[in-house]
């Protein structure tokens, strides 16, 4: 592979544009320069740190360390799901439902890919397992947090209509069906958009990275397709479990709507 290696100065050169945006903001009093600075510094620190961690992890290539890394990723993503919800389920459900369904979906899909398609040696090789798990996890996280947020918001907003259906003899899932459909649609939206744009409007980030790193485009495309299928699978599986679980928790065994199980709105 003929990778063109990047030095710190190469990166510094292109970061000029970020600097330029900041200066423009300052000059025109747009007020985004502070946020831009913080986000940029944060990104540089996070990525440099993860680069160091991955280098270490790849050199050790041990199962316990790989699992530990995956656990840390899961905990961060779970917190992110809970934080992004306007009204979340109260108590452990608020953190647990999103984290559990996301982990279940991402782990299942990653395991199938490692065992079935990629088959690295050893199977848990962090060079494959961690980036794959991360991509799948990140997308499942976005889908599930959007889905759960939509579901709980709709349950509160549409409460009179949902309770009317219940009063007319509907079961809990019949009464919540419109809210669940809306949640599934919203959760899938970013994925559908990404698929529609892939290759025509935008070259997916991973594929671009691989091509720039010297991989033949056809090979990069195959990897990208693999990733896309995994991401769609994990998002769909996780979203479905999360929305079903959320609807379950928002109602009780007597098929009553229980919006009292939501924490106060943020």
């Amino acid at each position: 592979m003929n990778v063109v290696s990047l030095t710190v100065w190469d990166l510094a050169a292109v970061s000029v544009f970020v600097l330029l945006s900041g200066l423009l903001s300052l000059r025109l009093s747009l007020g985004v320069e502070r946020q831009l600075l913080i986000a940029t510094v944060r990104m540089v620190v996070q990525l440099s740190a993860v680069g160091a961690v991955l280098t270490l992890l790849f050199s050790v290539a041990s199962l316990p360390w790989t699992l530990l890394m995956a656990l840390v990723m899961v905990l961060f993503a779970g917190r992110e799901i809970a934080a992004r919800q306007h009204r979340r389920l109260s108590g452990w459900w608020g953190y647990g439902l999103g984290t559990a369904t996301m982990t279940l979906a991402a782990a299942t899909v990653t395991a199938v890919a490692l065992l079935g398609s990629i088959q690295p040696e050893p199977l848990y090789d962090p060079r494959y397992a961690i980036p794959l798990f991360g991509m799948v996890l990140g997308n499942a996280m976005t889908g599930i947090s959007l889905g759960l947020d939509t579901l709980t918001t709709a349950a509160v907003r549409e409460r009179p209509a949902i309770e009317t259906r219940i009063a007319l003899g509907a079961t809990r899932f019949e009464a919540l069906r419109p809210a669940m459909q809306e949640a599934m649609r919203r959760g899938f939206m970013p994925m559908i958009n990404a698929m529609a744009a892939a290759g025509v409007v935008s070259l997916p980030g991973m594929m671009t990275g691989q091509i720039l790193a010297g991989i033949p485009p056809a090979e990069a495309v195959r990897y990208q397709l693999l990733i896309m299928f995994l991401i769609i699978g994990a998002t769909g599986l996780g979203l479905l479990c999360a929305v079903l679980g959320g609807a379950w928790r928002l109602t009780d065994h007597r098929h009553r709507l229980r919006t009292d199980r939501l924490a106060a709105a943020k």
Binding site: P160, T164, I166, A167, L168, G169, A170, H253, R256
Partner: peptide, 16 residues
């Protein structure tokens, strides 16, 4: 619950 409410029907003051 659903069985009960098919017989015992609430008509709220404001229809939704």
């Amino acid at each position: 619950g659903p069985q009960w409410r098919r017989q015992v029907r609430l008509v709220p003051a404001e229809a939704a």
